[in-house]
Amino acid sequence: MPIALLHFALALVLSPMLLSLTHRTKAFFAGRQGAPWLQPYFELGRLLRKGAVFSTTTSWVFQVAPALGLAAAMAALTLLPFAGHRAIIAFPGDLLLFSGLLALWRFAAILAALDTGSSLEGMGASREAALSALGEPALILALGAIARQTGQLSLSGMLPALTVQTWNQAWPVLALLLVTLALVYLAENGRVPFDDPTTHLELTMIHEVMILDSSGPDLAFIEYAAALKLWILGALMAAILAPVSPLPEAPALLLALAGMAGVAIATGVTESVMARSRLNRLPKVLGTASILVAVALLLIQR
């Protein structure tokens, strides 16, 4: 239990670092120096010191949503095992609660965007809903496939059960799952090619447009929850990418952190080599994720 708490604290502290790592990778590719490593923390601190401004159109929903989103993200984090160690909360079937909490986070964001009464934010909310409706089946099927592969029904049981042995036995399945989770990770976090996190006030964006009216601590909550989500979905990939199971405590933690860093750097590389995809192509890309995971599931049925 203390180790699970330590991992939880580690995730809370380190998750903005993933943003920084991705940003630095992109800067490296662009030949720039990039912002300081602690920039995401500075920005969170700056936002927290400010006061929030609420438009008269908004209601209490808009004020509750950021806190709800952050709470959902942190609750999902308590279900997530890290470095082959059991999570704080674990019970059979918690993978459904896990994806439900991610859905709650999204629901809060969408409600807040709709509550502003701005047509632009409404558009963003509609796009977010459409994309996540396609991404969620892929995520749940991927978790289900891991459950089926390992014979465990709890995230804390099934992610550590993925070992080098599993790669030897069923590497095509794991590779398919990895690609699926990577696509879901990029879509859910609004990264290129699904959305461009650096654009503002542009008609093609999805995530950024939904938070245009948020300010001060509310915006800090939203940004921090987004960083946590990056950590949460990244940890799913890292668990497959860098199986730590037989290793002792300390090397396992190091390997898991290296896996997280690998995911963040891979995101940066993806964003450097790809452009944002056309909006009407995105459903096809996410549909591909679902198809890949369905193929993986069928292969496991053998």
Binding site: W171, P172, L176, K284, T288, I291, L292, V295, L299
Partner: peptide, 20 residues
């Protein structure tokens, strides 16, 4: 091992034929 990978790629090429 390699066989399996080739066969999965074959499935994926079939699917991409349907989608393009």
């Amino acid at each position: 091992m390699v066989t399996q990978a080739l066969l999965i790629l074959l499935i994926l090429t079939c699917l991409s034929l349907l989608g393009s």
